[in-house]
Amino acid sequence: MTKPALDEFVVQFWGVRGSVPSPGFETIRYGGNTSCIEIRAAGKRIIFDAGTGLRNLGKELEGQTNLELHMCFTHYHWDHIQGLPFFDPLFQSGNSLHVYGQVPEEVRPMTLEEHFYHRVLHKDSPIPLANLETNIFFHELTCGETFKIGDAEIATAPLNHPNGAMGYRVSWQDRAIVYCTDTEHYPDHLDENILNLAKDSDILVYDAMYTDEEYHDPKSPKVGWGHSTWQEGLKLTKAANIRKLAVFHHEPNHTDDILDSIAKDLAEKSEESFLAKEKAIASVFD
């Protein structure tokens, strides 16, 4: 993998599965790793979440030196941090990692740095974390604030998820990619936080773990579990004038065949929208 081009603005998917890794013959085409995406904008490499997909990104970066990486966390549930101890660039001297995120209310007054070392990089990790070599810098965020990484502007907004989560909008050259995973829609209205964050964006990466039928299944309802559906994502996409919906955070029990069926239904309603697949790349300029 080469360094990001200065005129590049893309999202690449490294882990697209929700809740728990789901490897196997039935998940090969879409992938079984948990949440991790990379947005390359204005020559910067910005990573969102550190699920098990992060390990493969680290393998792609193998051999590169003096890396400057930026990692933003939506929240710290297991499926969003499991890959961190297996991220090879952390163990190479000369690299730098900038960590961005909010501190959960339940652990305050911990700083982001304390939270990262004591709760994200867990003491029970199978990797000897004392061997970390990269330089790590911490940027504690307050949900709702805007900041910059190089020439890219990053806006944030709260999401509807147990223990809280934060959505991100990356804007550059009048284009935007929005990442809103681990959020549950409301029964009687569209989420104003997401509508405002994603308005007129090019790509919305959205938590669509379930179908509407699964979400409301009377035998096993998913109401209150903190996740949404692709149909609700499509409503947001149309209401906020978003060009493409990227269906993300796939249910671990959804096989490739099930996801193919969802992709077919989605394409009938929105030609440019798609289901996220591991290693796939989507550009704002396509």
Results as ranks from 00 to 15, higher is better:
residue 108 R to L: 13
residue 4 P to Q: 05
residue 226 G to H: 05
residue 71 M to S: 11
residue 218 P to Q: 09
residue 66 N to T: 00
residue 229 T to Q: 05
residue 24 G to H: 00
residue 237 T to V: 13
residue 141 L to Q: 10
residue 16 V to F: 07
residue 100 Y to N: 14
residue 33 N to C: 07
residue 62 E to C: 01
residue 48 F to K: 08
residue 129 L to M: 11
residue 233 G to I: 03
residue 8 E to H: 07
residue 190 L to K: 04
residue 241 N to K: 10
residue 123 K to L: 13
residue 146 T to D: 08
residue 95 N to I: 00
residue 109 P to K: 00
residue 50 A to D: 06
residue 201 S to Q: 03
residue 255 T to V: 06
residue 228 S to P: 00
residue 3 K to W: 12
residue 131 N to E: 15
residue 174 D to Q: 12
residue 226 G to C: 11
residue 22 S to G: 08
residue 130 A to I: 14
residue 213 E to Q: 15
residue 134 T to V: 14
residue 114 E to L: 07
residue 159 L to K: 02
residue 140 E to L: 10
residue 224 G to K: 02
residue 132 L to A: 13
residue 51 G to Y: 05
residue 60 E to S: 07
residue 223 V to R: 14
residue 253 N to G: 14
residue 74 T to P: 04
residue 128 P to F: 11
residue 259 L to V: 12
residue 205 V to N: 13
residue 65 T to W: 01
residue 58 G to T: 03
residue 21 P to Y: 05
residue 162 P to N: 06
residue 85 P to N: 10
residue 177 I to H: 02
residue 205 V to Q: 09
residue 211 T to K: 10
residue 230 W to Y: 12
residue 133 E to C: 12
residue 246 A to L: 14
residue 178 V to E: 05
residue 165 A to G: 06
residue 173 Q to E: 10
residue 261 S to H: 10
